[in-house]
Each structure stands twice: as structure tokens, then as C-alpha cells.
């Protein structure tokens, strides 16, 4: 009995430490976003003169003169935010869909085979810097520069392997008998796919989707190189700099704001993380 209490207490302690460890930098970021320019380099956890200037800067950049070194007037953050939303959402949908079908075929029929699957990992193995010049050359020919379609395709192509591998892990764990039973009852292979597999593989879909969404949401290098005027959010945040250094407070504010959408998504998907195993298959 005592053992149980001790173990429980220990687990609670670890959890609390983990939460505190996670939260401290975030709290510091939040306070940074409310600090005035002069306070950015101080260790204080709470701002002495809290200000909304950093946030105002994001939405109505005409508020010049807030920052001493004549910062650049940029477009309000709404534009890049919506652009990034479209890019990330579309890329995620494409990648997850393609990844799902591929994972199913690989898991059940070895089509594509294990070697191909392994090959898709190649897309994640390459340090991105050298890929910049070839991609720029290629996309310029295809008129995909400064074009959200270019980024969507690039992100989908480079993250689909995540979807494949994560989903394959989940699909592998589903007993084949259920599909065979459904097939015997006259369902078409596609119906099996949609009505049997998807509900059970939902956690996989959701986890893979979230990661791919996040990768597209925060990617910077290619977004920078492949766009000029239609910039996504990550590039926009990098532009909050002045003649004497980065506007840390504004960047913190921008990062916090831009993390709200992924945060909401992360919260909503959680009920899908519990699989339908407990529901069991009642038929047959």
C-alpha cells in the first residue's frame, strides 16, 4: 500500500517537474512579448512596465516610432498568417492522404515494398542547405516561385514519409482478420479501407497530421528562398528586425500568436488519440 502511494507521488512529482520545465521558457516568452525595448535584455521574469506595443506592431505596423531605431513598416501579420494556414493545411491533407494509402498498401500487400519505403526516408536525410539552389532552379522554370503551390508541393513531398512510417506503424497493429471478415461479407477493398481501417487508425492519422502541419507551419529556409512578396508567417517573423538587432519582443509576440492555431488543433485532436479498440468490432 505504501509502495503504491510512493509510486503515485513520484509520478506526480515527475509530471509537475515536466510541466514546470516546459512552462518556464514559455512564460518567459510571454513576458518578453510584453516588455519594452529596453527591458529585453534583462533577466526579470515580469515586465516592469508592461506594454502592448509589441502586439500593436504586428497588426498595425504604421505605429512607427515605437522602436527607437526606425523599424521597417511591414504588412500586418494577418496576410502571412492566412497564407501559411492555407499552405500548411493543404500540404498536410495531401501528405496524410498519400501517406495513408501508401502505408496501407505497404502494410497489407507489400506494395510498395520495404525497400521503397526505406527510400522515402531519403527525403529526410538530406541537410537542406544544398538543396536550395537546385530547387530554386527547378521551381523557377515551373513558375512556382513566390507561389503558394510551390511551397505546398515541396512541404508535402518532404513530409509524406512521416505520414507513411507513422501510419504503417499503426496499421500494422490492426489484426488482418477484421479486414478479411469484412471482405468475406462482401465489402469492396475500398470500403474496407474507409470503413474499417480509418476509424481504427485515427490516432495515427491525427498524430502524423499534426507533425506535418507543424513542420510546414514553422519551416523557414525554403520559405525564405522561394518567396519574394507573398511571404509565409515564418519569413515574416524573421523580418522584425531593426538597424540595431532583432526585435525580440515583437518576434516573441508573433511566435506566440502564430502558435495559437497549432495549439488549438493540438487540443482538439486529443480525443482522436484514443483508438476505437475498446469499441470492438461487433459485427461478426
Amino acid at each position: 500500500m505504501l509502495r503504491r502511494i510512493l509510486t503515485n507521488a513520484l509520478m506526480w512529482l515527475v509530471l509537475i517537474i515536466a510541466v514546470v520545465w516546459t512552462v518556464i521558457p514559455v512564460m518567459w516568452m510571454i513576458s518578453l512579448s510584453f516588455k519594452t525595448y529596453g527591458e529585453w535584455r534583462t533577466p526579470s521574469l515580469l515586465p516592469r512596465n508592461p506594454t502592448l506595443d509589441n502586439y500593436i506592431m504586428l497588426f498595425s505596423p504604421q505605429a512607427l516610432g515605437i522602436f527607437i531605431a526606425y523599424t521597417a513598416i511591414l504588412e500586418p501579420i494577418v496576410g502571412p498568417l492566412s497564407r501559411t494556414l492555407i499552405i500548411s493545411a493543404t500540404a498536410t491533407v495531401i501528405a496524410v492522404m498519400i501517406g495513408f494509402f501508401t502505408a496501407y498498401g505497404a502494410s497489407r500487400y507489400n506494395s510498395p515494398g520495404p525497400f521503397t519505403l526505406f527510400f522515402t526516408l531519403l527525403t529526410r536525410m538530406l541537410p537542406p542547405a544544398t538543396f536550395v539552389t537546385p530547387i530554386v532552379i527547378y521551381f523557377t522554370t515551373l513558375y512556382l516561385i513566390d507561389n503558394i503551390i510551390g511551397l505546398i508541393l515541396l512541404y508535402a513531398a518532404t513530409t509524406v514519409t512521416y505520414a507513411i512510417w507513422i501510419l504503417k506503424g499503426f496499421i500494422d497493429a490492426i489484426p488482418v482478420e477484421w479486414e478479411e471478415a469484412a471482405l468475406l461479407e462482401g465489402a469492396s477493398p475500398l470500403q474496407v479501407l474507409f470503413k474499417v481501417i480509418i476509424p481504427i487508425a485515427r490516432p495515427g492519422l491525427v498524430v502524423a497530421g499534426l507533425f506535418i502541419f507543424l513542420m510546414a507551419w514553422t519551416e523557414l529556409l525554403f520559405a525564405l528562398v522561394l518567396t519574394n512578396l507573398n511571404v509565409p508567417l515564418s519569413v515574416q517573423v524573421s523580418k522584425y528586425v531593426t538597424a540595431v538587432g532583432a526585435l525580440w519582443g515583437v518576434q516573441a509576440a508573433a511566435a506566440l500568436l502564430s502558435s495559437i492555431i497549432p495549439l488549438v488543433i493540438g487540443y482538439l485532436i486529443q480525443r482522436h488519440l484514443i483508438t476505437g479498440f475498446t469499441f470492438g468490432l461487433v459485427r461478426g
Binding site: S111, P112, G113, P114, F115, T116
Partner: peptide, 15 residues
């Protein structure tokens, strides 16, 4: 799950 390499395995570039 079909242990031996099934005939439908097609490695992407080397087949």
C-alpha cells in the same frame, strides 16, 4: 503478413 518478399515488391529505383 506474407513473410517472403512477395512478387509485387518493387524497389523504387533499382528494379
Amino acid at each position: 503478413m506474407g513473410g517472403e518478399k512477395a512478387s509485387s515488391e518493387k524497389p523504387k529505383k533499382f528494379d
